[in-house]
């Protein structure tokens, strides 16, 4: 009898606990209702891609020396380099170059290893097409530069989370000229220059004395 009563008591306690947890959960959901939306209203607002964004690859035809390093470092040997050896100049002559972005995984190895820096990553990510073969970009398509989000009059550019001032989590209605937390690359370069100058002066001072 006592054991049964204890069982009933445990069961009641369990039910009460479950109710408590559901109540806590409800309070969390309710609290979320009064927070501002974090969504970016895509076609009207767009995020500014970060400077290391790995978007569609840009290719400069005149810089390419047809060395095929990009093909070798590519996980699937994707770039197609169509060249011919020109006996007169004893150099490879590039005819065509293409990358199929329907297959590319945007790992950036080709960009990393290109000896002449003729490959680079852009911030373009809107690659939708009606036919997958349209994603096979030839050297002309690869040479086009994407349109910048910040220059598009139809789009309100939004900063990404890491580029917001310290403590700010919403990219809407930022005060003008607000900067992200930490120093910007330009500031760092200036600072390094100053430090180098200072070191030089100190060195001169020590040699003179």
């Amino acid at each position: 009898m006592f054991k049964f009563l204890q069982q009933v008591g445990d069961y009641a306690k369990g039910a009460a606990n479950a109710a408590k947890y559901i109540g806590q959960g409800l309070s969390v959901t309710f609290d979320h209702m009064q927070r501002r939306p974090v969504t970016v209203q895509y076609p009207y607002e767009k995020l500014i891609p970060s400077e290391r964004y790995r978007g569609r690859i840009h290719f400069e035809f005149d810089k390419c020396i047809s060395c095929e390093v990009c093909v070798r470092v590519c996980p699937i040997q994707l770039p197609v380099v169509d060249w011919e050896f020109d006996k007169a100049s004893k150099k490879k002559k590039l005819h065509h170059y293409s990358i199929d972005f329907g297959v590319c995984i945007f790992c950036g190895n080709c960009v990393e290893y290109c000896p002449t820096n003729c490959l680079s990553m852009t911030e373009e990510y809107e690659l939708a097409a009606y036919d997958r073969h349209e994603l096979n970009y030839d050297n002309v398509a690869l040479g086009r530069l994407p349109y910048k989000v910040t220059q598009d009059p139809m789009v309100t550019p939004q900063r990404e989370f890491a580029y917001l001032p310290k403590g700010v989590t919403d990219s809407h209605d930022l005060p003008k000229g607000s900067q992200r937390a930490g120093s910007r690359p330009e500031d760092l370069v200036d600072q390094m220059k100053k430090e180098a100058e200072q070191a030089k002066q100190e060195e001169e001072a020590t040699t003179q004395s």
Binding site: T29, H32, R35, P37, T39, Q41
Partner: peptide
């Protein structure tokens, strides 16, 4: 609308 608000959407 309520679902959107609970998930911080519009």
């Amino acid at each position: 609308k309520v679902s959107a608000a609970a998930q911080q959407r519009i």
